[in-house]
Design a protein around this nucleic acid. Structure first.
Lengths: 222, 222, 222, 222
DNA sequence: CATGAATGAGCTTTCATTCAT
DNA sequence: GATGAATGAAAGCTCATTCAT
């Protein structure tokens, strides 16, 4: 956790540092991020950096935490009463908000999702485990409720599905930005919606891709 | 691509270098891998390295290629006539062989799957695109056939599904090794099968997780 | 010398700072001691430190002075009338008290004796000279008296012997603590006496180690 | 131990580095010695330094070893048959050669003796123990012989005396150079003899300083 | 073709000290 | 008198790469 000195900083300066960190981590990833460049971009002395943060890891964890908080803003009121809604509605809401945040803060999104994807950098392992410790039980309770309500197949392997639900959000992110890239759209000012990607993903999670043979019986739609 | 000098090397020496590279990349990842350590472990001169490879990237790409070739060995005869089999059978075979290879070569597996998971290291982008260029059309033709045969829902977004199919293999890998870790099983001599994980994944891809309302219809699951 | 501000401090705070300084210098030595750590341990502001002391040197000299004063407490009444006692009795008393102080305040002892042992750190040179300026004349007058009383060989080189007497106390310290270490004795609660070491040293200084051949005649040369 | 690369260096360059290291350690001591300054003085790249040595400690240990070897040159033939000579003759020879070496190589001497004097720098602890492991048994066998020959008082505490004999050499060094300093003599080209100091020390070790009561008997002194 | 010495920019981190509040 | 943010030089060390032999 950053030191008090950091939180005592005037907001402007604090934001400047966080912005520099976001740019640096977003462009170079954790390993290749350079504190030299960060302090240069933020216009602070190198010694000052170490009065604000323990080290590079400390800064990185702070950014992840900060992004997590910012992401909450994107949640619609739906999540305020999670148990009043259908499981797939909740999942859709989670994915939608995560993706919308990443759309508006592409560097932050990139950094945040990198966590799930790099096992070789030791610091990620720790953050990843933290995330699992938080997200795991939450998803589990959602799943339990969904099964008891007959929304989700009771035959699933819960641990496996939770693992997938976490990773598929990262996959959504990749797909979303990849499509963007292909379309050569400028990220700045991007306003189009993330719903197509979210819908594709939710539908996939719901039904898989196998064609249901018998025309008579449908098991839902999409 | 490595220079000719590398391929002209006595096999023993070549394998030694490759082994050192596998260890190093497996332990530290691409960014933190040190050529210094690799040449020390392989017992070759620093200058020799640069007569074999252009640079670190060149070596890394070579390793990825090599792992790809080794993975082919794990394919059963099923894949020799891909169009004679059911889509999900083929998919199962692909995942099974990939996972079995990763099980037997955990470092190689780790390195291989890292590709799909790290966008910040520029070299990965390139390799990733290569992989997509190869795997994409292959999956697409499989999907086309499967749809025409009525095995796969024709309503899917092919690009999205191909993206998922590629990423879910990486997710299988994570899940498989994570479970191992949790169970505290020694990797050396590990002989248990990868099929449980593969089956969970295939079943998920097929059917999703939504409970099919009408009891009459089963849509399988192993 | 510390500034007035330091001496005006409430005793509790002053002792806290001195305690932190003792710990730091005792653990790291002068060169590697960190003012950052000292102020952190003492719970004072960095700026306050520089309102109490000129710099690190100033603090260090103060600690040495303080230890010197504390050592006086260990002196028995014998030293109140130094000229009423035998030279070797006085020497024994000096060594005993010094060692007893070091036994009860091992960190302080370590710091104090470090002075005699490190010529490369400039600050030590100065403190060392101070010590010599104080201890030298005192030892000299003791020696003069001892010679005139026939206790000490008049043929000695006084300057050399004074040098030795000072250094041998440091050597006692080393030997005492080294023996402790070897014996794996826990320092906390150590109650055993320092007299064996003191006696060994005094006896050595008195008689050297040469076997006196004839009870009657001593020979030797050199 | 330095790496092979160092020993493969042309002698001229090797000596240049060693000379720079001697100057730096001699002037600043181990803790404050700067590798930056050493490489600048030696005219080599910083990276080169780390191809020659593991780290600063490695270089320092090498210098100590080197000085130890150079000191051997100062030993007279007396030491080739140590058991043919009187104990105090041998001791005199040891001290004389050590002091003569230090006289001709004052920086080396300073560095070498610093070892015995600084407990707070961890690297010294290790070198100090090494020295004790070597010197201890040697002194012990000398003492055993001396006692059996009736040269040394059998009542001594051998461990204590060995400790002293080691430390007194360092004390000689201090005294010798302190005297020099006082006399304001230029060290370069200093040719005066070290024997006065050695004789004072040997005589002290032999006889101590107590006046032998019987007027009849003299115990000389040089 | 093999070698391994040379390079210097770059890294993260610590430091004692100043000074405006 | 107390504070603690600001500073930038300096530390030890690693790196991928070059090149003369």
């Amino acid at each position: 956790m950053p030191k008090d000195t950091f939180f005592n900083l005037p907001e402007e300066k604090r934001l400047l540092i966080e912005s520099a960190a976001t740019d640096e981590f977003g462009e170079y990833g954790f390993d290749n991020a350079s504190i030299n460049r960060i302090v240069a971009a933020a216009g602070i002395a190198k010694g000052s950096f170490y009065q604000y943060f323990e080290d590079k890891v400390d800064l990185f964890k702070h950014m992840i935490t900060k992004f997590g908080e910012q992401k909450l803003v994107y949640l619609s009121p739906v999540m305020q009463n999670p148990f009043e809604h259908d499981f797939f509605t909740l999942l859709e809401e989670l994915y939608r908000s995560g993706l919308a945040f990443a759309r508006d803060n592409p560097k932050a999104g990139k950094i945040g999702f990198e966590i799930f994807k790099n096992q070789t950098t030791p610091v990620f392992e720790e953050i990843y485990q933290d995330t699992r410790r938080q997200a795991g039980p939450f998803f589990e309770s959602l799943l339990d409720q969904a099964i008891s309500r007959g929304e989700v197949d009771p035959g699933i392997d819960k641990g496996f599905i939770i693992h997938l639900l976490i990773h598929l959000q990262a996959a959504s992110f990749d797909y979303y930005f990849q499509t963007l890239k292909a379309g050569d759209v400028d990220l700045i000012g991007w306003t189009d919606d993330v719903m197509p990607t979210v819908n594709l993903m939710i539908n996939f999670i719901k039904n898989g891709i196998q064609l249901q043979k018998q025309g008579v019986l449908t098991n839902d739609q999409s």
